[in-house]
Write a protein that binds this DNA or RNA. Structure first.
Length: 391
DNA sequence: TCTGGGGTCCTAGGACCC
DNA sequence: TCTGGGGTCCTAGGACCC
C-alpha cells in the first residue's frame, strides 16, 4: 500500500505562511513581470484567473495584474520541505522523495501503529499541518501510478483511496489529459488516433499502440490505462547527469561574452562534482537561439574530465564548432553526463598536462568549502554595478 | 504574452566488433 | 552483383516531469 503525498501549491503556500496579509490573494511565485521567465507555482486564487505553472510570467501578469508577484526563495522552501519529510519519517522508514514537495510512502506494515490507510492518511495530514501549517493531498493505492493520480485528483487538501478491485473504474474516472506520462505531444497523437478517453485507450491492442507511438510509449500507455504501474518512479537510481544553463535577459551575440559564461558554468559544475566526488566523461553544450530553435553538441572523452580548465576547453570547442556564426543566443547551457563514482585516467598515449590544474582547483574548492577563502577566476567576475564594460 | 532550470528516459542512425 | 545478424557505444534531438 503506497501513499503519494503532495504539498498543495507549495511555494505559494509557503509565501502565504510567511505573509498572512497575502492570504487568499492570487499569489504568483516565479520570475519578475517584465522579464524573461515563467510561473513557478501559483496559489489556487491565482489559478482562478487562468494562471498556471510554467506559464510565461508576462502572460500571467496580463491575466492577473492584481496578483502578488514574488521571487522564488528556494532556501526557505527547502527548510519547510525538510520539516515535512521529517514528519513523513515518523510514519514510515520507507519514504521516497520525488521532489521538494512530493514523496511516496510505503505504508505496508504500519497498520498496528496508525490504523487502516484512510485513518493513517488523516493523521499524516494533521501532523504536517500542525508542524508546518501546510496542507498536503494524499493518494492511497496499491501502486505508485494509482497513488499519484489519486492525490492529484483529490487536490487541494485532499485524500483519496483507490480500493482494491476499483482500479479500472478509477482510471475511467480520469480525463485522458490527466494521465501521467502523456504530455502535449502524446495527447495530440492520441487525438489523431481517435482515442479520447482512458477506456478507448484500453481498447487498443498493445501492438497497435506500439506501432503508432513507439515501443516504450506504447507499452507505457497500455499498462497505465489498466491501472498497472509501468514503473513511474524507480527507487534509488543514482544521478546520471548534471547541468546548468542560463537564459539571458537579452540575446547575446558576442562570442567572448558567451565564452565567459561557459567558464563560469564550468566552475560551477566542476565544484559540484568535486563536492560529491563524482566523475564524468561526456560533456554537452546547449545553444538556444533568439528564435528559440535549440541545438546541442556533445563529446565523450576517453577519460573523466579532471578540471574546470579541461571542462571549459572542451565546452568552448563544442560551442565554437556548433554555433552558427554571429547568431544571437538566448540560452547557453553546459552539462556533464555518464556520472560515476570512479575516475578514468588519461590514456598514456596523449597525456594532457600533469594534473596541476586539477590539484590547484581542488585546493581552491577546499578553501571555499571550509569558508577560509573565496577564490574566483578573474574572467568570471562581474564589472561593478553602474559602470559600463566598454573598456 | 513568447516560451526557466534541472533532471530522466527513449529513439534513430552510424560506427565498430565478432 | 549484392551485400547477415547481433551487440555495444555514441550523438542529436525529443518527450516528459516537477
Amino acid at each position: 500500500m503506497y501513499f503519494h503525498v503532495d504539498l498543495d501549491a507549495f511555494f505559494a503556500s509557503a509565501e502565504e505562511l510567511d505573509h498572512p496579509e497575502y492570504r487568499g490573494r492570487p499569489i504568483i511565485v516565479g520570475a519578475a513581470p517584465g522579464r524573461r521567465g515563467v510561473v513557478s507555482t501559483c496559489s489556487y486564487a491565482a489559478r482562478g484567473f487562468g494562471v498556471h505553472s510554467a506559464m510565461p510570467i508576462n502572460e500571467a501578469y496580463r491575466l492577473c495584474p492584481q496578483g502578488v508577484f514574488l521571487p522564488v526563495r528556494m532556501e526557505r522552501y527547502l527548510g519547510l520541505s525538510r520539516q515535512v519529510f521529517d514528519t513523513f519519517n515518523n510514519f514510515t522508514p520507507d519514504v521516497y522523495g520525488v521532489s521538494i514537495d512530493e514523496a511516496f510512502l510505503d505504508m505496508r506494515g504500519t497498520e498496528a501503529l496508525f490504523g487502516p490507510a484512510p485513518e493513517a492518511a488523516k493523521k499524516l495530514k494533521a501532523a504536517v499541518r500542525e508542524r508546518t501549517g501546510l496542507t498536503i493531498s494524499v493518494g492511497v493505492a496499491e501502486n505508485k501510478l494509482l497513488a499519484k493520480l489519486a492525490s492529484a485528483k483529490s487536490k487541494p487538501d485532499g485524500l483519496l483511496v483507490v480500493e482494491l478491485g476499483t482500479e479500472t473504474a478509477f482510471m475511467d474516472s480520469l480525463p485522458l489529459t490527466k494521465l501521467w506520462g502523456a504530455g502535449e505531444a502524446t495527447q495530440a497523437r492520441l487525438r489523431a488516433l481517435n482515442v479520447r478517453s482512458v477506456r478507448e485507450l484500453r481498447e487498443c491492442t498493445l501492438d497497435f499502440l506500439q506501432a503508432s507511438l513507439g515501443q516504450a510509449s506504447g507499452l507505457f500507455l497500455y499498462q497505465a490505462s489498466r491501472g498497472i504501474d509501468p514503473g513511474i518512479h524507480s527507487e534509488d537510481t543514482p544521478t546520471r547527469s548534471r547541468s546548468t544553463e542560463r537564459t539571458f535577459e537579452y540575446d547575446v551575440s558576442n562570442a567572448e561574452s558567451l565564452c565567459s559564461v561557459l567558464l563560469e558554468m564550468s566552475e560551477e559544475l566542476m565544484f559540484s562534482l568535486f563536492k560529491e566526488e563524482l566523475y564524468a566523461r561526456t560533456v554537452c553544450v546547449k545553444i538556444r537561439y533568439g528564435d528559440f530553435s535549440t541545438v546541442s553538441a556533445r563529446v565523450t572523452l576517453d577519460h573523466t574530465v579532471a578540471s574546470i580548465k579541461e571542462l571549459y576547453a572542451v565546452g568552448e570547442r563544442l560551442f565554437r564548432e556548433k554555433r552558427l556564426a554571429e547568431a544571437p543566443v538566448r540560452l547557453l547551457g553546459l552539462g556533464l553526463s555518464g556520472l560515476r563514482a570512479d575516475k578514468v585516467e588519461q590514456g598514456e598515449l596523449f597525456p594532457q598536462g600533469d594534473g596541476r590544474a586539477e590539484r590547484l582547483e581542488r585546493a581552491v574548492f577546499g578553501l571555499k568549502k571550509s569558508g577560509r577563502a573565496e577564490l574566483k577566476i578573474a574572467r568570471t567576475l562581474k564589472p561593478p554595478q553602474g559602470e559600463n564594460d566598454d573598456d
